[in-house]
Design a protein around this nucleic acid. Structure first.
Lengths: 229, 229
DNA sequence: ATAAAAATGTGATTTGTGTCACAGAATATA
DNA sequence: TATATTCTGTGACACAAATCACATTTTTAT
C-alpha cells in the first residue's frame, strides 16, 4: 500500500452526503485528522481480529468486506465509493469483526475514530446522514441474505452478475474483478459450481465469457432466473 | 391489539440508552408524540409493503422481524426489549421493507418518525446512541448470516437453542415461543427437519422436550455441535 | 362438548450441490 | 526463457436435506 500525506477534505471532490453537512470548522478538524492511502488488488486494508485505529472512507475502487466463518471465508458485501466502512467497530471491543480487502486499485482516507465520534455528537445532521447510510446498508444486507439463503446457485449467480453489471460497472460488459473462488465466497458456493453454472449460462446464450471479461447478452432472461431462484 | 393513552416517557422505567441522554425538554417532545400499545402472540405490529408512520420502541415481550423471500417467509431476527425497530425505514421510500409480529405478549410505544428525526438532528448524543444500536445489530446480523449459511442443520438449531437459552430467557429451560415451522423459518429449514433434528438431540440426551417446553441438558455438547457446524 | 383447523411426528424418495481428483491455462517469480 | 504458483475447467460420486404423503396430537372456534 502507499501512504500519501494529509489530504485536503474541504477541496476533496469525492465527498459523502455526511461530510457535505459539516461546517468549515468541522471540516478543518476532519482534515487534520485524516490521511489518504492507496491499495493494489488483493491488498488488505484492515484485518479481522486486529485492533481498530480508524474509520475508513472509500474514495475510489472496490472493496470486499469478508469474514471467516466456521468452514470458510465469506464475502459479506462489496463496497463501492463513496462510503464509510468500519463504523460498526468504533464501539465495543475495538477489534475488527471482519476484514476489508481491495479487489481493484482503491483509494481511501483514514479518519481517527475519536474525531469521527466527536463529529457525530457535535453535529446532529452529520449523525443523521451516517444513520441513513447504516440503514441503507442494513436493508440491502437483509435482501441479500434472503436471496442467498433461498435461491439456488443459478439464481444467486444471476443476481451477482446483474449486481456487477447494474450497480458496480453500469455496463453490460465488464472485467470480473473477483476470481472464480472469490465469486464462490460471494454467492455461497464452491469454485467448481461457479464454473459449472457460468458454463451453463454461456451455453444457454445468456452471457459470453472470455477469461475475466463477461458480457451479459440476455439480461431479461437473467432477471427471470434471478426471480425463480 | 390494544391501544392505551399517551405514555409518560420521563417516568417510564424501560428507557433505552438513547433516551437516557435526552434532556427534560426533549423528553417532553418525545412524550407528546408517543403512544403505547400491546399485542398478543401472533399479532402483526407492522407489515411489509405498507406505509410507515412510526418508529416502534419495544418495551417488553418478543418480536420477530420477518420478510417474504422468493420461496418463503423468513425470520431475519428476533428482537427483545428494550430496542427501537423500524429505524431503517424512516428514510427512502417510506414503505416497510419487512414485517414485525409479536411472538409473545408484547408492549410497544409508537414514536412519530419526524420527532425521532428531530431528536437525532438536535441531540448529537442521541444520534450517537442510535448509531451504536444499529452497529450492534449489523455485527450481530453478520455473524448470524455466516452461521446460517455455513453450518448445517444440527449446528444451526444448536445455535438457536443456545440463543433462546442465553440471550432471550436466561434459563436452561424455557417455553419455546416459536412453532416448529417458525423455528424452521428462523434457522432456514423445513418444519420436518426441525422435528427430526430436535428428536435427534433428544435421543442423544442433549435436551428434553415436553411439547413447547424445552430443557437444555448438556449445553457444553450443544456448543460443540454449534462449533463444528 | 364437538367440530374444525392448526401444529406435530415419521417414513420413503428425490435432488442439488459439495467433495475429490486430475488436467490444462494463465500468471507470477526466478 | 524457464519454473513455480495460482487459477480454471470437467467428470464421477456421495450425501444432507428438501419434498411428498399420511397419521396423530394439540389448539381454537362454535
Amino acid at each position: 500500500m502507499d501512504f500519501s500525506e494529509k489530504s485536503n477534505c474541504s477541496t476533496c471532490r469525492i465527498k459523502s452526503c455526511a461530510v457535505e453537512v459539516l461546517d468549515q470548522h468541522e471540516l478543518e478538524i476532519l482534515q487534520t485528522n485524516c490521511s489518504g492511502a492507496s491499495y493494489k488488488r488483493g491488498e488488505r486494508i484492515f484485518q479481522q481480529g486486529t485492533l481498530i485505529s480508524n474509520i475508513v472512507y472509500v474514495k475510489s475502487g472496490l472493496i470486499k468486506i469478508h469474514k471467516k466463518g466456521p468452514s470458510k471465508d465469506q464475502i459479506l458485501k462489496l463496497v463501492n465509493p463513496p462510503r464509510f466502512i468500519g463504523i460498526p467497530t468504533i464501539l465495543g471491543d475495538r477489534v475488527n469483526q471482519y476484514s476489508a480487502t481491495a479487489v481493484v486499485p482503491t483509494e481511501v482516507c483514514f479518519i481517527v475514530t475519536q474525531i469521527f465520534k466527536t463529529l457525530i455528537s457535535r453535529n446532529g445532521k452529520f449523525g443523521h446522514e451516517i444513520i441513513n447510510g447504516l440503514c441503507q446498508d442494513e436493508l440491502q444486507f437483509f435482501d441479500r441474505s434472503i436471496n442467498q439463503m433461498q435461491k439456488q446457485i443459478h439464481g444467486r449467480l444471476a443476481d451477482a452478475l446483474l449486481y456487477f453489471s447494474n450497480d458496480i460497472f453500469c455496463a453490460d460488459a465488464f472485467i470480473m474483478p473477483l476470481t472464480r473462488a472469490e465469486l464462490g465466497d460471494f454467492v455461497h458456493t464452491t469454485r467448481e459450481s461457479v464454473t459449472r453454472t457460468l458454463t451453463h449460462f454461456k451455453n444457454d446464450g445468456l452471457i459470453t465469457v472470455e477469461g475475466k471479461k463477461i458480457t451479459l447478452q440476455d439480461k431479461f432472461r437473467l432477471q427471470k432466473i434471478s426471480q425463480i431462484g
